[in-house]
Design a protein around this nucleic acid. Structure first.
Lengths: 198, 198
DNA sequence: CCTACCGATCGGTAGG
DNA sequence: CCTACCGATCGGTAGG
């Protein structure tokens, strides 16, 4: 019975976090009220606090959940032993798919993290900085091996990540091309942009 | 004397709008309070209302100021008679420079426009939609003429605009490369990504 | 999970 | 341009 209660609590909490992600994306963290979140979930605002600690802690859970997924993936890729350009492509594809399939949380983590409270704000910034550094290192390897054109790796990372963030506009548009087509088009442009000119 | 008074009023208003742009960028529109804006400007909150109508109207002024600059520029480029790839490059360079030199307003117009009130929200969305359509048309011309690789033009626009939005991260980073280098690197990657593979 | 409620802060107005 | 102030809304707590 204790087990059942715990698992119910857990799923309730996750429902709240998922609803919050959608709400934070739509309205922005500051403009999204706990009252509107409660309405979405179907309870009174005060009842939310039986499952979550506070509004900023919800944001923290979203941001760190997403961050750990990307850190796991880059770890796998670094250890893959594939060629650099393949590694860049894998990572880009992972970002694109996350942005398509796990849109609400990824978007919130990308755009609303600045409302994190300390010490989470600093921790998140640091994770982000290290992630980008590792991404830049993969690109640097590609330059060293002559697979990637002579560019500033940090700038390349910046372009990649933000370009992929643009999928937000795709979600909002009518007459979308398919997710598959979107992925192929983005990969084509971005990878082509990195390749050595011959 | 009336003329002097008016010109003083105007510059006071523009000071408020510039301060607001910086504040909206730093805190986000919702989190930025009129009281903190007043503090920045050096008056009491209530005194702001002698120069501006309301908080959302400040946002409107920022967004439409920026939008009209981009609309002017794309107009000039469409009429230039240059080759397609040159047109794309000109437009990208304009975006990059605006993002570097007119950062606060451009960033706010890019990220905070969703807090616009009707009817401005709809008007802004429509201007944006048309702008992107014109940008996509330039790329479509390039594809038709065989200068640009076979990709979805709307996706290409999405990538370009959001990649350039990434300059925000450049502003925030220490150890920046120079603005000039940034521009050249971004142009290199983005234009290279569009070009026909040979 | 709800009712009742709190202190803080918000955008904005009245009046001078 | 300021003092004084308003109603609305916010995140969150007490107590059951």
């Amino acid at each position: 019975m204790a087990r059942i209660k715990i698992s119910k609590e857990e799923s309730r909490k996750e429902l709240i976090i998922r609803s919050a992600a959608t709400l934070f994306r739509k309205k922005g963290f500051k403009a999204a009220s706990m009252r509107s979140l409660a309405e979405e979930v179907g309870v009174e605002a005060s009842s939310l606090y039986n499952h979550i600690h506070s509004k900023p802690i919800i944001l923290k859970e979203i941001c760190f959940q997403v961050a750990s997924q990307f850190l796991n993936e880059i770890q796998k890729i670094e250890e893959s032993g594939a060629s650099t350009l393949e590694n860049v492509e894998s990572l880009i594809r992972f970002h694109i798919r996350q942005m398509i399939e796990n849109f609400e949380k990824v978007y919130v983590s990308d755009r609303e993290w600045r409302y994190l409270q300390e010490p989470f704000l600093s921790q998140f910034r640091e994770q982000r900085r290290l992630y980008r550094k590792r991404f830049a290192q993969i690109i640097q390897d590609g330059i060293d091996r002559g697979q990637i054109t002579q560019i500033d790796p940090a700038t390349a990372v910046l372009i990649m990540l933000h370009a992929i963030g643009g999928i937000e506009a795709w979600h909002r548009s009518k007459n979308k091309i398919s997710g598959r087509e979107l992925e192929e088009n983005m990969v084509a442009i971005l990878i082509n942009g990195l390749k050595m000119k011959i």
